[in-house]
Computed example of a mutant assay.
Amino acid sequence: MSKWIGVELDGTLAEFNKQYPEEIGEPLGYMVSLVKGWLKDHQTVKVLTPRASTSSGMSKVKAWLGDNDLNGVEVIASDPDMVTLWSSRAVRVEFNSGKLCRGCSDAPVQKHSLPLRAGGQLGSAMRFVDERVYLTDC
């Protein structure tokens, strides 16, 4: 089995609106940029969402991904009853921003080839160390 990067849909890749939970929200630019960078580098990215547990939900997710130039991302159904995920590989993301959590100063982040611009979204948040990327301003 090949290695892959998992990204949650609601609140991480797409804005989640509690008033309209059935709708997939607007794309969260920061995370979309990260995913596009990983795809550009031919890394496997999978979106996890309980929406994909039905065929109509899966269709909506795939359409949303296509509309946001994220074709090639696999969709995996996650359990809608999951409250939290405990993992040594999880990186916390601020809800509805798609940005990495400010409290995760030593969290490893998957490296990709997006340019790191001084003062830019990625440039101010990360620095490269060996084969891993670490957050520095969380």
Rank of each mutant, 00 (worst) to 15 (best):
M1C: 00
K3D: 04
W4L: 01
I5P: 05
I5F: 01
V7L: 03
E8L: 05
L9H: 09
T12D: 03
A14P: 04
E15C: 09
F16P: 02
F16S: 13
N17T: 10
K18H: 15
Q19V: 07
Y20Q: 11
P21R: 14
P21K: 15
P21F: 15
E22I: 13
E23G: 15
I24M: 14
I24T: 04
G25L: 00
E26G: 14
G29Q: 05
M31D: 01
V32F: 05
V32T: 09
L34A: 08
L34S: 02
W38L: 02
K40Y: 01
D41L: 02
D41E: 03
H42C: 06
Q43C: 03
T44I: 14
T44L: 13
T44H: 11
V45S: 13
K46M: 04
V47G: 07
L48R: 09
T49N: 10
P50D: 06
A52G: 09
A52R: 08
A52W: 04
T54E: 09
T54L: 11
S55T: 08
G57T: 14
S59Q: 15
V61L: 14
V61A: 14
K62E: 14
A63D: 11
W64T: 13
L65D: 02
G66S: 02
G66Q: 04
G66I: 00
N68K: 04
D69N: 07
D69E: 10
N71S: 15
G72A: 01
G72S: 00
V73W: 03
V73S: 02
V73Y: 07
I76Q: 09
A77D: 05
S78A: 12
D79K: 14
D79E: 12
D79A: 10
P80G: 10
P80E: 11
D81H: 08
M82G: 06
M82L: 12
V83N: 00
L85N: 01
L85V: 12
W86F: 12
W86L: 14
S87V: 06
S87Y: 05
S88R: 09
A90Q: 03
V91S: 15
V91F: 13
V91I: 15
R92K: 10
E94H: 12
S97W: 11
G98L: 07
K99L: 05
C101S: 04
R102G: 13
C104R: 11
C104Q: 13
K111W: 15
S113D: 06
S113L: 03
S113H: 11
P115E: 07
P115G: 00
P115I: 09
L116M: 00
L116I: 06
L116N: 01
A118F: 14
A118W: 14
G120I: 04
G120D: 01
Q121H: 14
Q121G: 12
Q121R: 13
L122I: 08
G123R: 08
G123Y: 10
S124F: 04
S124I: 06
A125R: 11
M126V: 08
M126W: 00
R127N: 01
R127Q: 05
F128P: 11
F128I: 11
D130N: 01
E131K: 15
R132D: 07
R132S: 03
V133M: 04
T136N: 05
C138F: 06
